[in-house]
Amino acid sequence: MSGMDLLNVYHLQIITFMAVNSILALSFYLPLSAGQLSLGCAGFMSIGAYTAAILSLHYGLPVFTTIPAGAAAAALAGVLLGFPALRLTGVYLAIATLGFGEVVRVLFLNLKITNGALGMPEIPNLNDYFSALYRSWGLQGDLAGLDLPRLAALTTVVFCYFVLAACVAFVLRQENSRTGRAMAAVKADEVASGVMGIGATYIKMLAFVQGAFLAGLAGAISAHVTNFIAPGDFNYHRAVNILLFVVLGGSELVWGGLLGAAVLSVLPEFLRFMQDFRWIIFGALLAAMMVFRPQGLLDRQLLCRFSLRKKRAMDGMDARASSGEVD
């Protein structure tokens, strides 16, 4: 059946990477929502990935401790980098954070514990972890027509999307809170925000470290999804790719980055039949996008149009019910 074909492990892995990329988009979006263009995501991602890989391979820690540890390690690096880097703004901050990513990459390239350029193979895999878990529950054969590997792969997908959903919820709820308003204020006018009682240094550090945490989280998960990591996975191509998620999807809104991550995760796969030509098409699409819709696929106006339609419908209902006011 075609339904079953869609659930092959290859497709499931692409769907998993969509979730990982979405978390990366959030990690780029967060500092940006406080006015900082940080390209350190790839660096933080590699810190998360290597921390998780080393802890599980060399110290035998279980996956559910190495993933938070990877995120925490990246957040710590974010604090250390933040102190000097957050004095910079705009393109200078972008260059400094990109430089940080390169420093981290070269470090991992030359360290013994990271196995240098050869990378780290045989990282314990989430699929295997879930398979073992199900087996320990006495599950052997099929469940609802799914064999054990597929069931495990499906569980990995569910797990990743659960983590993503938690991250999205956090970012959205923070945005509609005191902290989020402070971030928006700092982005809009740092001087005015200070005079309005907002400590911009703290707010920028918070957004930066949250971004680092999410990038580390994405890195740790990806290490446990791919089995193998090498320094080259986290070069500046990766940093630019994460930037593209948000720029293409729309940098004003959380949903923009998520959409961009989804599109850019799937598009190369759809274009696969064109082989090497696909990168030409891909590049042309991006260029066209920047010409015709520089603000990205999603922007506030588009969202307003949607919510206006919803509001009008609600107003209509309210009028009929003739009860009080909306909101």
Partner: peptide, 15 residues
């Protein structure tokens, strides 16, 4: 946004 310094709740409480 102007009320920031007179309020207390953080991101986790919002979450």
């Amino acid at each position: 946004a102007g009320q920031y310094c007179r309020t207390r709740t953080g991101a986790w409480q919002a979450f």
